[in-house]
Amino acid sequence: MTTRLPAGFSTTVQAADAHALRLAVHGYLDHDTCDEFASTVATLLDAHAARHGPALRHLHLDWTDLTAFDSSGLAALLGLRRRTHPAGITLHLHHRPAHFTRLLEVTGVMGHLTERARGADSPEAVIS
Results as ranks from 00 to 15, higher is better:
Gly88Met: 05
Thr67Met: 04
His92Met: 13
Ala68Gly: 14
Leu56Pro: 00
Arg81Gly: 05
His58Thr: 13
Val106Asp: 08
Trp63Thr: 10
Leu80Lys: 02
Thr67Ala: 12
Arg81Glu: 04
Leu61Gln: 01
His95Ala: 12
Asp65Gln: 15
Gly53Pro: 07
Ala98Trp: 10
Thr90Ser: 10
Thr101Gly: 13
His52Gln: 09
Pro86Glu: 04
Phe69Ser: 01
Gly53Thr: 12
Trp63Leu: 14
His85Asn: 08
Ala68Cys: 07
Pro97His: 04
Leu104Glu: 05
Ala76Ser: 11
Gly53Asp: 07
Gly88Phe: 01
Arg83Ser: 05
Arg83Lys: 09
Ala75Arg: 15
Ala98Gly: 14
Thr101Ala: 13
Leu93Pro: 03
Leu91Tyr: 00
Ser71Pro: 05
Ala75Glu: 12
Leu61Ser: 01
Ser71Lys: 05
His85Ser: 13
Leu78Glu: 05
Arg57Ile: 07
His92Phe: 03
Trp63Cys: 15
Leu80Gly: 01
Leu59Gln: 03
Ser72Lys: 11
Leu91Gln: 02
Arg83Gly: 05
Pro97Asp: 04
Ala55Thr: 10
His99Pro: 10
Gly73Glu: 04
Arg96His: 11
Thr101Met: 11
Arg96Leu: 11
Thr84Val: 01
Leu78Gln: 10
Arg82Ala: 11
Leu103Lys: 10
Thr67Gly: 11
Leu77Asp: 00
Leu61Asp: 01
Thr90Ile: 05
Ser71Asp: 11
Leu59Asp: 02
